[in-house]
């Protein structure tokens, strides 16, 4: 089962490696991890996408909470939430045909950036499911795919 865990932690050097180390040391999965500043200048917010049964997720939350630098841990997927991910895909202009263009137009938050070479860079911000779909549509002609991993917030 896929879960998103949101962690607020002290913005101390080494805090990221405490979390990353915990996951590898205890054989927990990390599908993606993103970290950036938060509303509090002295704390960072980390969003971890992981998977496991209920007992594993319970352990992940408890172990994270046990880290001395961690201020708050919440599992956000069990409640109503919004999640988004960003992806950049570089494609060769000559590979784009009408069929693909039609498909691409069905994506809500799509931007096309021209690059100096003969490539196009497509930017898509959407839910991870839609991003997956988008990526599978375009994968064959993609030269490079850069994904951010999901961030999320509870909406209730």
């Amino acid at each position: 089962m896929r879960h998103i865990i949101s962690v607020l932690l002290e913005n101390e050097s080494g805090a990221l490696s405490r979390v990353a180390g915990l996951f590898s040391a205890r054989s927990f999965n990390i599908e993606s991890l993103s970290v950036a500043t938060s509303e509090d200048l002295t704390a960072s917010r980390m969003t971890i996408v992981t998977s496991g049964d209920d007992a594993v997720i319970e352990q992940i939350v408890k172990q994270l909470d046990k880290l001395v630098d961690v201020i708050e841990v919440s599992e956000i997927t069990s409640n109503e939430h919004i999640e988004r991910e960003i992806v950049f895909v570089r494609i060769n202009n000559s590979e784009i045909d009408k069929k693909i263009m039609d498909k691409l137009e069905s994506y809500e938050f799509l931007k096309i950036h021209n690059s100096k070479s003969n490539d196009l860079i497509i930017e898509c911000v959407d839910s991870p499911e839609n991003i997956n779909q988008f990526v599978s549509t375009i994968k064959k002609i993609a030269v490079k795919i850069v994904r951010s991993g999901a961030v999320g917030i509870n909406s209730n």
Binding site: G14, S17, G21, V68
Partner: peptide
Amino acid sequence: TVGITRPCVKHNFM
């Protein structure tokens, strides 16, 4: 030292 000891301490500081 902080890196090496991280998995086997309750906490560490530099």
